[in-house]
Design a protein around this nucleic acid. Structure first.
Lengths: 254, 254
DNA sequence: TCGATCTGCGTATGTCATACGCGATTGTGC
DNA sequence: GCACAATCGCGTATGACATACGCAGATCGA
């Protein structure tokens, strides 16, 4: 098959478990899994800023430098932590044909997918502080991509556009999660009121109007906000699909 | 304990220039503007990780601690740097009526707006490493919001949904910019080839199909990617607007 | 049994943000 | 003019952090 020709990034090797641990020497007293779990626990309780090598090691009752027998650097640990926290995606019905769920199955599927991804962010808000590039090639993150593509399998979209749609949606979910956190964090200081104080209606008439309408005062509109954006995007995808449906023949791109 | 009622976050006060500098004492040898400019220059050339208080001070030929006479903490500096780097938005025709650009002016306007915001990210890629919450209430960031709302002024959408759309779009632009960076960064390691090596067609059939179609090999498809997502979202907004027009007004769009 | 290899981990180094305080400077009230 | 308090630039100190290096003991293949 594919042998290891070009060097994979260390973070990728680690996340996929492609590490050559020799067989000689003392038994390892730790496992990567335990370290990752301890790191996630620290991140969940005290935020990602509290995740230091010393702290994680302390949580496990070992010396700081012991961790470096299992991870090459802190960034690698964070990457594996993040991918683990995302969890595996629901890949849907196992060996389904392309049109398993009706002509509009993609819409329900992608909605389910987005909800699941959102739940991951909710469970681990610190994921939002990990740059997306950290998990790009990690197994669970890849499984989320696979899942999105599977929900679109029965769709006449070209592969390129399926991929684009998946990226668009995963970015959207991440954004909404970020907004939720930020708005929740700013709510204690009355976001709307603060903004109103800074924006006079002369320089910022449109914004002033929006604030005056009280749109920012409802603090638990976050679900509506999410649904609004998701439906907006899915409507756009629907239009795209419709545009692709009339001709069933091979669409030669560009 | 300021003149205003509730205490504004320090970062907000600084960004809006609401700082009470006394009049006694020696003349300040520095200005906030010079410090911010130096910081931006460091970030642009060596990345945001290189922006340390010592480095910025060194760039200005002053002692590290001198900076703290002008900013309360590093985070405040980063916030003002980021807002400055975004620049002010193009607020469009100054005193335009609600329907200044025809019934579909919003679409061209928001496209222009998205392009402008994208250009800001392009000019200063390090902005992507600054958390969005850092600039949330800063003046230029607010002006971008104002601009988006103005382009939608002639639209029957309720204020709430204009706001949601603006947030959706600003998040989208940020995501696409992030993707551009990441894909460009991973291109040197053949992103598609690496992914293909990790994903067998048994566990990841949909992904394998997408990769096999060569969608990931075109490296300068980034403009297409951006347009794709933007049109997707704007189509969704158009559908929403159509749904909000009370009576059938026969808007036959060409 | 012996050496190669691996373990946990103490120590040292260098970077960073920033608290604290000192001497110099300058506007203000007398 | 003068005293004083506010403000300046900034040297020094502190404590957190990632991590390079190397040692002593454990374990396995020979």
């Amino acid at each position: 098959m594919t042998n290891d020709e070009a060097a994979l990034p260390a973070r990728v090797e680690l996340a996929w478990g492609l590490r050559d641990h020799g067989r000689r020497g003392p038994k390892p007293g730790l496992t990567l899994e335990r370290i990752v779990a301890a790191g996630i626990e620290v991140a969940r309780t005290d935020g990602i800023a509290a995740v230091s090598m010393a702290r994680v090691a302390g949580e496990l009752g070992v010396g700081t430098m012991s961790l470096y027998r299992y991870v090459g650097a802190k960034d690698e640990l964070i990457s594996v932590m993040a991918d683990t926290a995302f969890g595996a995606a629901d890949l849907g019905p196992d060996e389904a044909g392309p049109d398993e769920a009706g002509p509009d199955g993609w819409r329900a599927g992608l909605t389910h997918w987005a909800d699941g991804l959102r739940a991951s962010y909710r469970r681990n808000p610190w994921l939002l502080e990990v740059p997306v590039s950290a998990t790009m090639l990690a197994p669970n993150t890849v499984s989320w991509m696979e899942a999105a593509l599977r929900w679109m399998a029965g769709t006449p979209l070209p592969e390129q556009q399926k991929l684009s749609t998946a990226l668009l949606l995963s970015g959207f979910v991440r954004n909404e999660a970020t907004l939720s956190i930020d708005i929740a964090g700013a709510a204690s200081l009355e976001f709307g009121a603060t903004l109103a104080r800074l924006t006079d209606e002369v320089r910022f008439p449109a914004l002033h109007r929006a604030i005056a309408s009280g749109s920012l005062d409802d603090d638990d509109d976050l679900d509506d906000e999410f649904d609004f954006g998701l439906q907006c995007i899915l409507d756009g995808v629907a239009a795209l699909i419709e545009r692709h449906r009339p001709q069933q023949s091979r669409t030669h791109r560009r």
